[in-house]
Write a protein that binds this DNA or RNA. Sequence first.
DNA 1: TTGAAAGCGCTAACAA
DNA 2: TTGTTAGCGCTTTCAA
Lengths: 336, 336
Amino acid sequence: MTTPGRPPTMEDVAAEAGVSRALVSLVMRGSPKVSELRRARVLEAAERLRYRPNAMARSLASSRTMTIGVLLNDLHNPFFADIAGGIEALASELGYQLLLGTGRRHPERERTVVTSFVDYRVDGLILVSPRLDEADLAAAARSIPTVVTGREIDAPEIDTLAIDEPLGVRAVVSYLAGLGHTEILHVTGGDGAGAATRLQCFRATMEAAGLGPGRLIEGDFTEEAGVQAAQAILTRGDLPTAVFAANDLTAAGMMDTFVRAGLRIPADISLVGYDNIYIAALRQLSLTTVDQPRAAMGRQALELLLERIDGRTERVRRLLEPRLIVRDTVGRARSR
Amino acid sequence: MTTPGRPPTMEDVAAEAGVSRALVSLVMRGSPKVSELRRARVLEAAERLRYRPNAMARSLASSRTMTIGVLLNDLHNPFFADIAGGIEALASELGYQLLLGTGRRHPERERTVVTSFVDYRVDGLILVSPRLDEADLAAAARSIPTVVTGREIDAPEIDTLAIDEPLGVRAVVSYLAGLGHTEILHVTGGDGAGAATRLQCFRATMEAAGLGPGRLIEGDFTEEAGVQAAQAILTRGDLPTAVFAANDLTAAGMMDTFVRAGLRIPADISLVGYDNIYIAALRQLSLTTVDQPRAAMGRQALELLLERIDGRTERVRRLLEPRLIVRDTVGRARSR
DNA sequence: TTGAAAGCGCTAACAA
DNA sequence: TTGTTAGCGCTTTCAA
């Protein structure tokens, strides 16, 4: 008999249908080796009792959770939200659940989040631009299939999915150089691993183009960082001809600040962002930037992960191609 | 003995520490009634084996999952991402996990997501602007504590948290009316429940202000809807003096389209958004809009939910105050 | 303060 | 095709 108040169990359904619990289990999992008669009877009983299988119990018994842990920096940044959206879209198609956590760029906090994912025995881990060190990442990956995006990792048990950073940065610098820019300033993304790569590429490309090391201002991928960087530039009074911001958010903050200060873009200063989040396309910003296929990144990260879950052991490192999106914030270098 | 490959269980720790499994359980849950000697011994053993409790097993045995199911429309919309961010911040503070799903505005899809949350026996449900009908919502709420945001629900087992819609809309309309606007067009949010309320308030306020029913164009809360609405207005050639868009995204799309068509804002047409997402503050848009405290909404939704989980049974319906944020997209009505 | 034992609701051999 | 029987790893009485 079913006790009202307590949700019905498989046992209740079995009793109601007059069959064994195991048979109900088979039916619930859509096994083909159940007679139509019984299947119908079980389904009816389940319907009658409004039975729903308990995913926890199922997971415990089968040691599969159909759940993926996703670690993001923060949800407010549309860049990460878009990646999460891409993951979510495919996950829901395939019946996977998403356990979501944010690291807020603190390695310790990330460790906590990953640990709790591990506690939940998620089937896999997608770590988006994690700040954790390689040792921690490798440790996690040894117990659970793991894909890292936005950063390259050496550990053989970790798949990585990243943008071809040199390609994107080179596109920016050579585009700027082609328009006569020689004094190019880069506002960095700070201490994040992705930022480091971008910075390094910037330096290398500048040198290769014979433009010297380039000027730098430290940032942290936020709009606020852009505001501060722009203020610093204005205060210093020594304007570069072009600015390459670590991302669109930062570029937006800079543009805002420059415009408030009376500068015209691109007449007085050229500006390039990175990411191509949707605000970049707004006419009011019309920001020249580098497109990163974010939803595709999310989707492919999950694809790689599922391959791992299915048993692949060779490491995969996928590189996605960024594209320069030319809009209206870059002009010819002003003459000095 | 611990089998390498399999993660250690409580049993392994008990053996390693020379105590019973139940005692290990007590220690892991921080029970005070364990002698310091044993506690230390257990903790050491756990450390040695790198033991981590299995959350699934714990949930199954205790029938608490420490997990909250969060249903959003979609992650790409920063409005929802911000709410999710607010929820996540508090959840992580309190040791709760977030199971995340998106409904993409399809009731059937929402039902699927909610069902899978129920399958996981999450401790609570936060449904952000759900499209599901009240019967489905009430059904879910009967088995799991539920908070709905962005929409008012009658069911007594559901707490709701919403913006004081009439207040926000009234602020917009009376502000516009005060500047001499009489032909005000509203671009709606379509079939969403939130949109319906906003629309209804718009109509009521317009009538109350003696401005007639107001003109309407149907939208769906997207930027694209704004583009299309603006194009429709331009094609028709009959410009209202002011447009009140259902949200900032839509307003951004409209502004973009108007500007591309050579209109000046607010000289030729005034524009008001809703939400105050961060793009509204950018100088290049500087959109007059209505601020909705999104992160606070997320946070409070979780607070209400936790009260329910702790046993509160009286219904709570909280109303948050929106604020008109005056920027630069509204001017005096142009003379005809 | 500690331990023994009975579940939590399900899956997964294996037998029938 | 169906049922039986062990678990999955933990919590929770209840005794000791």
